[in-house]
């Protein structure tokens, strides 16, 4: 049975609009809807604090969540296909652990060696964090890509990736041991993940990088479709497996690296969203799954951000707790329904 693809896509886009607006309207400071609307359209001359809240906090946060969710989900979809493993996700190859390691080096070492606690130097510190995260994740990715050209089996590569992740985490553990408590706290907070950290120019930069990278990942849809058949069949249909693997891992890895650098390691979205989309559209065609994951990822991230910011939590709830708490039951229920449908057919 075919699903009406266009209709479903439209549905997700409407969801994105609704949750984007809700993200802007709701927050710890109550701003009436009319005023929010006017501020958004630029014809508002009232409360300057409200304007600042909307433009400097809520809109950047919503935009960050939207692109970060999209990036992680697309990356997760690519990883699941290239490793033919439903449990694969953006973090599976240790690339996000690499980002954490980069951040750990900077945060923890600068405190104990340089005597400057990064957590205290504001915006420069943020930029330093981002850069160190990118360097950390990209160097792990380079290592993975090097390995991927050496080993034949996907499973071998997957295991090596997981092992590299463990090593990165072990390095972090050692660094933590030698660090002062304050720095460790700064590192732990980074590790909780947040869409709120990115502000101003950095947000513009982040969103523009993602707006370039996301379309690039669409160039791989045919490759991904062929990889579904398994290496031998894909090769028989003219696909250069080594090159395909390199392309997909690079694309997926860069997406994770950038998102993790700006938002911290966001868990679960990249694993769960592709499954949601497969069930929703009942297809394995990446020409549909790719845009679907992108949109659905954005929508889910907006939902999670909204819940994390719900009145009462006051921004204290880390996004990672929400992604798992909301995401896991959703995925489990989806899978349960899928089983039932399979039996009924």
């Amino acid at each position: 049975m075919k699903r009406p693809v266009a209709l479903y896509m439209l549905f997700i886009i409407i969801l994105i609009f609704i949750f984007f607006l809700l993200n802007i309207i709701l927050g710890s400071v109550q701003i009436p809807f009319r005023d929010v609307w006017d501020i958004l359209w630029g014809d508002y001359n009232g409360n300057e604090i409200w304007q600042n809240i909307i433009w400097k906090s809520r809109v950047p946060q919503a935009l960050t969540a939207l692109v970060a969710g999209a990036g992680l989900s697309v990356s997760g979809l690519q990883m699941q296909t290239v490793f033919r493993n439903p449990l694969a996700g953006p973090s599976v190859l240790g690339i996000s652990s690499g980002a954490s390691m980069g951040v750990a080096f900077v945060v923890l070492l600068s405190g104990s060696l340089g005597g400057v606690a990064l957590s205290k130097i504001g915006i420069m510190g943020e930029i330093a964090l981002t850069i160190s995260a990118i360097i950390g994740s990209l160097s792990i990715m380079a290592l993975i890509i090097f390995v991927s050209q050496k080993v034949k089996g996907n499973v071998t590569l997957l295991i090596i990736g997981v092992m590299i992740g463990y090593v990165a985490n072990a390095v972090i553990g050692v660094l933590k041991y030698f660090s002062v408590e304050e720095d460790i706290r700064a590192y732990v907070i980074w590790g909780l993940g947040s869409f709120a950290r990115v502000s101003g120019n950095q947000m513009t930069l982040f969103v523009s990088i993602m707006l370039v990278l996301l379309p690039v990942s669409f160039l791989l849809v045919k490759t991904l479709n062929l990889l579904l058949l398994g290496d031998a069949y894909a090769r028989n249909l003219g696909l250069n497996i080594k090159r395909a693997r390199l392309q997909v891992i690079t694309c997926s890895g860069v997406l994770v690296a950038i998102v993790t650098a700006y938002c911290g390691p966001i868990i679960f979205l990249g694993l769960a969203v592709p499954h949601l989309c497969r069930t929703m559209f009942r297809t394995s065609d990446h020409r549909i799954l790719m845009p679907a994951s992108l949109l659905m990822g954005g929508a889910m991230a907006l939902v999670c951000n909204l819940i994390a910011r719900m009145p009462g939590f006051e921004g204290a709830l880390p996004v990672n707790s929400v992604t798992a708490l909301v995401g896991a039951p959703v995925v489990i229920s989806v899978l349960f329904n899928k089983r039932r449908n399979d039996i009924n057919e």
Binding site: R84, L229, G230, R278, S284, D285
Partner: peptide, 9 residues
Amino acid sequence: TEKCELRNM
């Protein structure tokens, strides 16, 4: 000979 694990295709 190998079986493809193809779901939703």
